[in-house]
Nucleic acid binder design. Structure first.
Lengths: 144, 144
DNA sequence: AGTATTCCTATTAAGTTGGTAGGAAGAGTG
DNA sequence: CACTCTTCCTACCAACTTAATAGGAATACT
């Protein structure tokens, strides 16, 4: 259960763009606003544009803007854009794991985990996260 | 949302030991039973033993056995034994992320994801997984 | 005592991820 | 057109994970 730096940076960048309120935001602004290495961020922004989540504009007054309203982009959309499948087991999507013998039951565990994660990230939009005091609609039941 | 090879192998090995029915199972048997590289598996088995989940015995008739009954070891126990914290963001545990500005809300998302995962893996025991036709007690609501 | 088998540990190679650097292409301005 | 700014793209380096190998330490049997 590892959230990669790419996924984390992508979400922070998307939130910073969303906070710009429709104006074009430059990559350099995002980088030092959220303490993200600029060159690394640029590769992530290309992924987000190719996934249809961001619009880009080159030139002197260039920058990035959301392709859809902030309440129509979910956390899951962003994660899938930069990481492929939402959950992967040893690099493969959870549904094609290929277990044999006594480990057959594991597949269902990963599918259940996948479903539980999807339930959270597909119901939380960028707009939800910009209203800070409100928490996402799942409480955390178990510690550690 | 990445399940490492280490975590996957650890669970498969624990299930194979549990299926041995109290008898000592050799590392080599586990390795070619579940198609795991032997030398890599040995390092994992050491972690599981140090975490108090496995007992080991050396010598001609040596091998590994569960330290507790299979219905008292959860999937979460195994994941924490080999991977430290259950969910990590950029290598750090989810609860110490350190977001600033517009990204503050992200912390709650990861905590919610962490809680949702824990709900699944801490309620599923090795004994549950050995009864194959039964599925873990969470249904998967959303595809992809 | 000796031997075979096994767990255990350290070292090394290959592959992926995180991060950096430089340049090519497009957009505006004079 | 020349110049500047910014996105976009490619190749490159460092660190970690995965994988494989070799040798040492402990146990059991003859």
């Amino acid at each position: 259960m590892y959230v990669s730096a790419r996924s984390d940076y992508a979400l922070r960048a998307m939130l910073a763009v969303a906070a710009g309120g429709g104006e074009l935001v430059k990559a350099a602004t995002l980088a030092n606003n959220q303490a993200i290495p600029l060159s690394f961020l640029q590769g992530i922004l290309v992924d987000l544009r190719r996934a249809g989540l961001l619009l880009s504009h080159r030139g002197t007054e260039g920058g990035y803007a959301l392709a859809r309203p902030a309440d129509e982009i979910t956390v899951g959309d962003v994660l899938r854009a930069v990481g492929g499948s939402l959950t992967t087991v040893r690099g493969l999507p959870a549904e094609r794991a290929g277990y044999q013998g006594v480990a057959s039951g594991l597949r269902d565990v990963w599918l259940a985990v996948h479903g539980a994660i999807a339930l959270v990230v597909d119901r939380t939009t960028l707009a939800d996260l910009l209203c800070v005091p409100r928490r996402p609609p799942v409480d955390d039941p178990l510690p550690s």
